[in-house]
């Protein structure tokens, strides 16, 4: 699966799509492949404040428990409740229906800490995943 060009990426394998002052956040195709069969998602509550680089959600496969880190700081304004009953969407459509939360961006300069598509792919190659 190709990593979309219009997104930004974190080194913790989250993607972010900026729509005005709202960031749509999910996990990358690489992340879902590493996790394999995702069977459980724990979402933050709407209204919760999340901090860039800090855990904000949890995804579990049959064998593993992994944190999802907030790629930007801000208030959670929407969560993808569909994932609660159908966590496998994260495996099937990590960049589409598999979005996890929408965050109201607090400080746009934080976006500079994130990677472009090319930057993320270079990072994946360099870390020899």
């Amino acid at each position: 699966m190709e990593n979309p060009k219009n997104l930004k990426y974190s080194k913790e394998h989250e993607w972010i799509k900026v729509e005005g002052d709202i960031a749509v956040v999910g996990i990358t195709d690489f992340a879902q492949k590493q996790l394999t069969d995702i069977v459980f998602v724990e979402l933050p509550e709407e209204g919760k404040h999340v901090t860039q680089g800090k855990a904000m959600a949890v995804v579990e496969s049959v064998k593993s428990v992994s944190d999802v880190f907030a790629p930007v700081s801000g208030e959670v304004v929407d969560i993808n409740s569909e994932l609660v009953d159908a966590p496998e969407i994260l495996n099937k459509e990590p960049y589409g229906k598999g979005w996890i939360v929408k965050v109201k961006i607090e400080n746009k300069s934080e976006l500079n800490n994130l990677l472009s598509t090319e930057g993320y792919e270079k990072f994946l190659r360099e870390t020899k995943h």
Binding site: T36, D37, V39, S61, V62, K63
Partner: peptide
């Protein structure tokens, strides 16, 4: 296979994914 350490051995934890193999 994805290889992990188990009881001092490097063993396959899964080849495709756990659910499919189960």
């Amino acid at each position: 296979a994805k290889i992990v350490e188990f009881g001092g051995w490097l063993m396959p934890v899964f080849y495709t994914n756990v659910i499919d193999e189960h």
